[in-house]
Amino acid sequence: MKPAPFQYHAPETVADAVGLLAEHGDGAKPLAGGQSLVPMLAMRLTRFDHIVDLNRVSEMFGVTADNGGVRIGAMTRQAAVEHDGTIAERVPLLHLATPHIGHFQIRNRGTIGGSVAHADPASEYPAVMLALDGTAEIASTSGTREVPASEYFESTFMTALAPDELLVGLRFAAWEQPAGFAFDEIARRSGDFALAGAAVGIGIDEAGRIDRAAVGMLGVGPTPLRAASVEAALMGLAAADAGADAAEIGRLAADDMDPIGDIHASEEYRRRAGSTLVGRVLGDALAQLTTEASDG
């Protein structure tokens, strides 16, 4: 199980990296943390004549406060995301989702940009990005463009990124209102890809009524999905009432799913267990609001 030969490039700037991508087109592949790409190379399931290693592009690393939210460089390691104070405070859902990614050795190398560029529908960051309406910052030799999450994920492993484009950063806005966040997933074993997962953010207005609902789902469709039916059902409800009905509301998510079966779980399982999970995670997020409300 050894990779086929390739030419190796280790640019130190985004400009050089996108230059290489422009030069080699389809034959080039950016290498981020390598935790998904290298196994595919080793098994010769994919091969590229040129590997453009991003690990020496220092400008792609790091988390910065950005207009009330955060900007996260695409090469920021998942371990750094997990332990970053600004992210924990401003984008708690990313903080909650990260420990579910693989194992700590994987997170030491894996990057947030790598996950989002790879766009595995069963992985965590794409679902969080979709739930939170995050933005992808994409560079090429023609400049930089921003793509909202709702337009970024196209189909399984397919995104708005063109072969000559590079995902250089992600932006997340912080939520201004009182909010509760929760993340969980069902996996066969600790650290496995999710059979189904949910990333939930619920915001309330001054009257304690839900005025923002973000329910992202993973593992239940060709891309990460929003549970639009659930979100719609939640709007305007009092948090405590929604909490009491969380399981029932969560069940609506089954209609928002488009799962495919594999050897680990059937389509039917993902729909059934996934919607149960949505209800539970919704309950967790709402519990934070009701606890906070009663505390304050």
């Binding site: 190796y8 290298v38 290693d53 690990n55 030491n108």
Partner: peptide, 12 residues
Amino acid sequence: EAVRSCLLFAVQ
């Protein structure tokens, strides 16, 4: 940092 050495190339 603990890493999988099968998922890194020596050049890296």
